[in-house]
């Protein structure tokens, strides 16, 4: 870094980047501020006093459908999707390290799952359940619909991980007498743990915020995004923003937790990791 001059393009690009970040976060910031509107405040600036009125409103059941219930369902569904995504994507990632019959087909299925429009998957699963006379529910059909979206992301992350993963560790573990199970649990998983945290983050947040794939699959009880969508058409008070603030706070908390876990793993690694070059 020392004595290296910035390229000519640096400052214009930096300014462009800053504008882009403002574009990303500006609107979100404005609704977070406006969710603290006074009781007589409206959907736009200026602030008409400051209060927690709209948050209180949110938790009163009669005001906005079933916020508390849908909130719980979405969190729970997100957690289930997260666990399944991590486990299934990890296993599939292991499988793809070797050539197996049909690996190309599975890969194309994953790509297809990403590019087939969500509304199509949603409608198809809805129809499937209908024709089989099964009742669509957030914990069955919607769970599957969400997995069809989170698993391809998980798989792609696993590809990236295992492309850079040396089989030497496993060979060493095997040479030292570890069983296949021990090799996976004590060698592979600890090494790729940070990436698994990333896969989990994708699993939870994509499910927690998924709207289109829940539309025909959630059944009788709404998940949170469906509830929010319903509110956008018939609520014209800052309670909408309060909801936005709460759900964004949850997303940020989850991202924060993932980052925290990630740094903790990295720190532990630096502490307990290689002693190369320390002259021990």
């Amino acid at each position: 870094m020392r004595a290296r001059r910035r390229n000519a393009g640096f400052w214009p690009l930096a300014a462009f980047f800053a504008l882009f970040v403002l574009f990303l976060y500006g609107p979100l910031t404005s609704i977070i501020v406006l969710s603290f509107q006074g009781p007589n405040g409206g959907l736009t600036f200026p602030m008409n006093g400051a209060s927690l009125t709209w948050f209180a409103n949110l938790f009163e059941k009669q005001m906005v459908g079933d916020f508390a219930g849908s909130f719980q369902r979405s969190i729970l569904l997100g957690l289930v999707v997260m666990v399944i995504t991590v486990v299934v994507a990890f296993l599939a990632g292991l499988a793809f390290r070797r050539r197996f019959l049909g690996s190309g087909l599975v890969f194309y299925l994953a790509v297809a799952s990403l590019i087939v429009p969500s509304i199509l998957i949603s409608l198809g699963i809805g129809l499937l359940f209908r024709l089989l006379d099964l009742e669509a529910a957030w914990w069955s059909s919607a769970l599957g619909a969400h997995l069809s979206w989170t698993l391809p992301f998980g798989l792609l992350i696993m590809f990236a991980v295992f492309n850079r993963f040396s089989p030497a560790y496993e060979e060493a573990a095997r040479d030292l007498g570890a069983s296949a199970w021990q090799t996976v649990m004590h060698v592979v998983v600890p090494i790729i743990l940070p990436s698994l945290i990333g896969v989990g983050l994708f699993g939870f947040t994509l499910s927690y915020d998924e709207f289109a794939r829940s539309l025909y699959t959630a059944g009788t009880f709404n998940t949170l995004p469906l509830e929010i969508y319903g509110m956008t058409t018939n609520v014209t008070t800052p309670v909408l923003y309060a909801l936005g603030t709460v759900t964004t706070a949850v997303s940020f908390a989850v991202i924060g937790l993932a980052l925290l876990a990630y740094t903790m793993v990295e720190r532990r690694r630096r502490r307990l990791g290689s002693d190369a070059g320390r002259g021990v």
Binding site: P27, T44, F202, D209, G244, T247, T248
Partner: peptide, 26 residues
């Protein structure tokens, strides 16, 4: 910083334009 919004609600991010773009918006 660029990726964090990806992990938040799309619908809320759409709604968040109202205070900026509305008739009485910023």
């Amino acid at each position: 910083v660029c990726t964090v919004p990806f992990w938040t609600s799309n619908i809320i991010r759409m709604i968040s334009w109202i205070p900026t773009l509305g008739l009485n918006g910023l």
